[in-house]
Amino acid sequence: MLWSFISRTRGRNRFDLTDWLTWGYLIFGMLLMFGPVLWVAMSSFKTDAALSEYPPSFLPLATQTAMVKGYDKPLPLYEITAGEHKGSVLAQIRRIGLNAQMVDPAHPDEKINVKIGDRQPKRELTFAWDNYSKLFKRFNFMRYFWNSVFITVVATVITVLFNSMAAFALAKYKFRGRMVVFLLIIATLMIPPTINLVPIYLVVNELGLVNTPWAVIWPAVATPTGVFLLRQYMLTIPDDLLDAARMDHASEWRVYWRIVLPLAAPAIAVLVIFSVMWRWNEFLWPLIVLNRSEQFTLQLALNAFQGDLQTSWSGLLAMTILTLLPITIVFAILQKNITAGIAQSGVK
């Protein structure tokens, strides 16, 4: 069944070399694209001890331990693979050279000597949720998360509002200077903000915005991409509809808000996706204008966290996963719309 589905080819019955190559490429690609993320996700559930294991295991395995009467600490359990006690599970007390002194948890009094080559640690799947809970307890994760959410949501709302208003004016009114304004906006598509880091910093500084979320929000909301995208879409809305609304006693604002905006919803959805992606992932500009750690976005916190020598990989990996999780969930739900929207507009 499955095979016939996979080997389905257009008009030809034979599964030929190109089909093999195609599937080889696709499976390799899938491993290459998803593998690293999956690997980090698995690693993020490992204890610090398991993380320092080399070679590493894929699943978050941890050596089992057991409390044995007469010993204060839990003892690691081993499976005996050869020799006299083959097949039994013993707890290790200590290692002495090539031998290990072990004990059967059922008979705590009797000590057994086993060659270290004859035993294998008994391991099982253990998820170190601790890596995650630490982030909330010891590290102000929610603060950074909230900062990121605030910037993303507010900037997106303002972006959509301002860009759609401008797009409406440029698409639906004939006024002197329209072409000039439009060309000016389009021209800035070619001048990315990275060129103007220094003077934008001055403006933000003069407005007293440094170290507030608004320093990230305001410079980003007047996107030429958004204006262009929405204008092109609004051009396809028939003018008759606007005239009909005007005959229906609608003010210009009402025409915009009740007719044009709802009808531009598909284009707005694309802009929302872009804006969320831009703001959530933005790095360089926040790095410049947000210097106090309580104002950090998730990305900045993550960067600061990895630069900090005190940081353990376990916390960092957990935080990486938490940072990519929201975007991944949104993508999993909306993947069709996202890919279609981006393919249509060809901007990012």
Binding site: P238, D240, M247, D248, H249, P262
Partner: peptide, 30 residues
């Protein structure tokens, strides 16, 4: 006077019905 103030109503060649509203909302919008 603005279009709406003249007390006229117009039927458009393309009908210009608001596609995102139901028939009832279309009729009642004005």
């Amino acid at each position: 006077q603005r279009a709406a103030e003249r007390g006229l109503a117009m039927v458009f060649q393309t009908y210009a019905l608001y596609p995102h509203m139901t028939v009832r909302e279309n009729l009642g919008f004005g």
